[in-house]
């Protein structure tokens, strides 16, 4: 009865027990947040042990939910601790202060758009992050919010096309790919650009 599946489960359950026990004894709020990131790993492990293509398709939502909640929670942490804005300056490197970031970012974004889908979003998002890092950032948050909302709407529309008029599946597929592209770009470009209260 002890197949590979159960042996794998044993290891993952032990990891989960250790991680949750750490959460029991930890008192500091920030460390709790860091431990939570760790706790997510066993849950991904349990899903991965399923070992089918379905498992991979379940890991993606699982991962995204974890990341999304971490984003919200860390912002709540920053607000509740009253951490004031720390100015993020552009990096003080000669190459970066020239036109290089703009060119590299444009290249990355173009390539990301060609790739489309999740990977494309990652690549294009990297371009935006790089640009923000090099240039410092300020405004633009309304724009990002809007892009996030639009991509969500595209996605929902694509979903309904898939479900109710499946003969247009190719259209739906491309809309979904564009939706996730925008979405991942927005999420990636937010990483590390929010700090403290916007009103400082």
């Amino acid at each position: 009865m002890w197949q590979e599946y159960s042996i794998g489960l044993l290891l993952v359950f032990i990891a989960a027990v250790i991680a949750f026990f750490a959460l029991v004894v930890e008192k500091d709020d920030l460390h709790r947040l860091l431990l939570l990131d760790l706790v997510e790993v066993p849950s991904l492990g349990i899903i991965a042990l399923l070992g089918t293509d379905l498992a991979e398709a379940l890991i993606l939502p699982g991962l995204v939910v974890g990341i999304a909640e971490l984003l919200a929670l860390s912002q709540i942490y920053v607000t509740k601790e009253g951490l004031k804005e720390r100015k993020v300056q552009g990096l003080n490197i000669e190459v970066i202060q020239a036109d290089a970031p703009l060119i590299i970012s444009v290249l990355l974004i173009c390539y990301g758009v060609i790739l489309s889908g999740f990977t494309g979003g990652g690549v294009a998002g990297l371009g935006v992050v790089f640009y923000f890092m090099a240039r410092g950032h300020r405004e633009h948050f309304e724009l990002l919010e809007m892009a996030s909302g639009i991509s969500w709407a595209i996605w929902i529309f694509a979903f309904f096309v898939f479900m109710f008029i499946p003969e247009y599946w190719l259209l739906a597929l491309f809309m979904a790919a564009i939706g996730i592209l925008l979405k991942v770009i927005v999420k990636m470009s937010l990483v590390g650009t929010m700090w403290g209260d916007g009103n400082g």
């Binding site: 989960a16 939570l36 706790v39 997510e40 849950s43 349990i46 899903i47 699982g62 974890g66 929670l73």
Partner: peptide, 8 residues
């Protein structure tokens, strides 16, 4: 957030 572990 930690409740997503037993859920998933």
């Amino acid at each position: 957030l930690s409740a997503t572990v037993p859920l998933f």
